[in-house]
């Protein structure tokens, strides 16, 4: 094979209709989707020779740790930097994520995910950043579990793949996993109820439908369903049954 055929779902601006454009670039070994896009933007001409505008997309680290270059590739959501052409069926079909506002071409606006983090109080409430010595001692096993949750890069794969997430009416696995992350921390646990409140609203944790696509789609292999079920337990114990202690 000496060329790579790439179909890109284009949109000029928010509200404009989407349409497909077909591009073709010379094959080289070790190409990833980003390299293809970089090649296309140098000289944006469609396969049929039509001059067009270069596609826009988001990219940054290219090592699958920043999460920005997420898009739907051949029907599945993933990072485009780690999508190697040699492992993909051709033609390669690139679409923007469908669960977020589409800004242009492959660019989406995921700021709602960061808003979710605000709502779930995703931080340890420090007394201050001045020197107070070391933090609490912790078991390495707990640390490793927290580390797994802490690797979430807010890429949105879990939300894109979730059949329950649409129009932002579900807070989603990523925010719930962050609740777990901080509720597991000895100092973080002191604000447990604030976080539970954040995931018990009308768009809260009960909107999970247990399709478990999130955990399959997560590029960081975060045990998202475990986090959700841990928080199910906490919401039952402290939320639903909390009044029994009063």
């Amino acid at each position: 094979m000496n060329t790579v055929e790439i179909h890109i779902k284009r949109r000029e601006k928010p509200g404009a209709p989407q349409h497909w454009e077909i591009f073709e670039i010379p094959y080289r070994p070790n190409l990833n989707v980003i390299s293809c896009l970089l090649e296309i933007r140098k000289n944006p001409v469609t396969k049929s020779g039509q001059k067009t505008t270069p596609p826009s997309w988001d990219m940054n680290c290219l090592e699958q740790v920043c999460g920005i270059c997420t898009m739907v590739i051949n029907g599945r959501v993933r990072q485009s930097c780690s999508a190697l052409v040699d492992n993909l069926d051709q033609p390669i079909k690139l679409e923007p994520m469908t669960k977020f506002p589409n800004i242009r071409d492959l660019v989406v606006d995921r700021s709602q995910m960061f808003d979710h983090l605000k709502r779930v109080h995703a931080w340890v409430e420090l007394d201050g950043t001045y020197d107070l010595g070391p933090g609490p001692r912790m078991d390495q096993e707990d640390v490793m579990e927290r580390y797994a949750y802490s690797r979430c890069m807010t890429c949105g794969c879990c939300l894109e793949a979730c059949p329950q997430y649409d129009e932002d009416h579900y807070i989603g696995p990523q925010a719930i996993a962050q609740v777990r992350l901080f509720n597991m921390h000895p100092s973080g646990a002191m604000d447990r109820d604030e976080r539970l409140q954040g995931i018990m609203g009308d768009d809260g944790i009960t909107n999970c439908g247990n399709a478990q696509n999130c955990v399959k789609a997560c590029p960081m292999n975060i045990p998202l369903t475990k986090a959700i079920y841990e928080e199910n337990r906490e919401t039952v114990l402290y939320g639903l049954l909390g009044w029994l202690k009063k």
């Binding site: 931080w123 340890v124 420090l126 950043t129 020197d131 107070l132 010595g133 070391p134 933090g135 390495q140 640390v143 490793m144 927290r146 580390y147 802490s150 992350l181 901080f182 921390h185 100092s187 973080g188």
Partner: peptide
Amino acid sequence: YLFDRMGVPFS
């Protein structure tokens, strides 16, 4: 130490 208190999962 500060990052430790912030909850960074240091080994």
